[in-house]
Amino acid sequence: MTASPAGPILAVAGRGLPLRGHDIDTDRIMPARFLRSVTFEGLEQHLFEDDRAADPRHPFNDERYAGAAILIVNANFGCGSSREHAPQGLAQSGIRAIVGESFSEIFQGNAAILGVPCFAADPLSLDRLQTLVEHTPAVTIDAHVDTGVISAGPLRFTAAVPPALRDAFISGQWNPTAMLLDRFDEVRLVADRLPYVSGF
């Protein structure tokens, strides 16, 4: 299991990994054969395994991006299967934030619960950021959860983490189980009022 960071996540800083392309699905991020396990251990070794084999120049093969903390993607990233193995693998490889045009909601929720905020930005800013990192892989990117401001070298633009997730990161409540178990009497009240729970 991943040792996720705990506590408030106000900002992520680190080097970037640009991964261009729309509609990159979770089968590509983590092919199903790597779900054949009762743990999440070692998933980082299999990220984009088939894409990497097909393309030696795949960004996840590129040593210049080793140790990157911020993945920079395009639209509808993480679509398809709800497998948490995809964001688990990314988190285990050291990715601590993802910046993209848009994300599948299931993926975004799965990433959030692991402490990985997904920032949505406009396509032009993303292209500039991807280009900057492609030319200058050592550049440090700063991504601020509270303001949504992302800066890197000469670039500075605003991106958005959905408000409820943003507040969860800021308050340190992005892993919600304890919060859901708090005041459990209220859960029972709601359940007891539901006709199908009480047997009609």
Partner: peptide
């Protein structure tokens, strides 16, 4: 609305789930 338990301090809604289905691949962890 019938399943909303409360507004969480994070801003999300705590939603009661009436039916939960599980299978062998995404549950062991």
């Amino acid at each position: 609305n019938r399943h909303a338990v409360r507004a969480l301090s994070s801003g999300q809604t705590q939603l009661f789930i009436g039916l939960h289905l599980i299978h062998e691949v995404t549950s062991p962890q």
